[in-house]
Write a protein that binds this DNA or RNA. Structure first.
Lengths: 144, 144
DNA sequence: CGGTGATATATAGCCAAGCTATGCTTATTC
DNA sequence: GAATAAGCATAGCTTGGCTATATATCACCG
């Protein structure tokens, strides 16, 4: 038990620092929030603003503003929800998809130097961890 | 090659989202930057402000302000550097160490529900990944 | 069919983290 | 000892994050 607790704590600490590396070493001024949002949309398809806020783990007004910024740069678009005229569906644009792909490329390039010389086993561990976290995070719809 | 690139990209995406989960589900108002800074100091011992800024991957003025805030809450302390009177050594206080430990506990508690039912292999992968990232990140003193 | 409460998004206003540019003080070097 | 470099602080900006609240629509019920 203590083991898994320590694992989680150090996993999250590492995630924090990795996030900073990514932000910094790509020389990218665009914020993590933008890519987080685009990644979610790209992976899970169009969804409502509120749903997107929960998936990205931010408050709804935060997402409202993010979506406004992203829309003004034509990275996402709003689609009227025919079933509920209070709501919108948020979807990526082709430009958004391209930007996301380009970011992932730059990211991989920027991060690669930190990970040179890893064994195949190490790479498998990283890939497995990424996939576990991805799955566990996207499933759960709030554990609060 | 393409494999490792994808692994890195998805690892970092996951890290972004995991960071948000941690920030949110602990119900903690203290920012990631604070814990990142304390973690580094606790792990690597006292160091200069500039050094700390590089380790935490933020610009020096950002660290200056963080250190001011942390010092005002008595979570770190500044020690005069006898060898260079321009510089300070930044060190954790006992209170800072306790706060960090408490945060790690809350973090583990908050994150645990997302990871129930993992196999031993999965846990090993997570632990390995955390340790790999930790090591690779702290070694490298800028790859820019 | 009208009113009441719930739901979906938007607005307002605040704080902190991040940045660049620049200033001030102390070292270092010639 | 004067010029340059190095270490930290200050100023000023942008953006992400939050809570509280407003607005608009839906859904239900009498």
């Amino acid at each position: 038990m203590t083991d898994t607790r320590n694992t989680l704590a150090s996993l999250i600490s590492s995630a924090h620092r990795l996030t900073r590396i990514a932000a910094q070493s790509t020389g990218d001024q665009t914020s993590p929030a933008v890519w987080r949002t685009l990644s979610i949309l790209a992976a899970d398809g169009p969804m409502r603003l509120g749903e997107l806020a929960r998936a990205s783990r931010v408050a709804q007004p935060t997402m409202t503003r993010l979506v406004q910024n992203l829309a003004s740069e034509d990275l996402i678009r709003r689609i009227a929800d025919v079933a509920d005229s209070r709501a919108w569906l948020i979807a990526t644009t082709p430009k958004g998809e391209r930007a996301l792909a380009a970011w992932r490329d730059r990211l991989a390039d920027a991060a690669a130097p930190f990970f040179v010389g890893l064994s195949d086993d190490d790479w498998r561990s990283l890939a497995a961890a990424a996939s576990i976290v991805e799955q566990r995070i996207s499933d759960t719809e709030a554990a609060a």
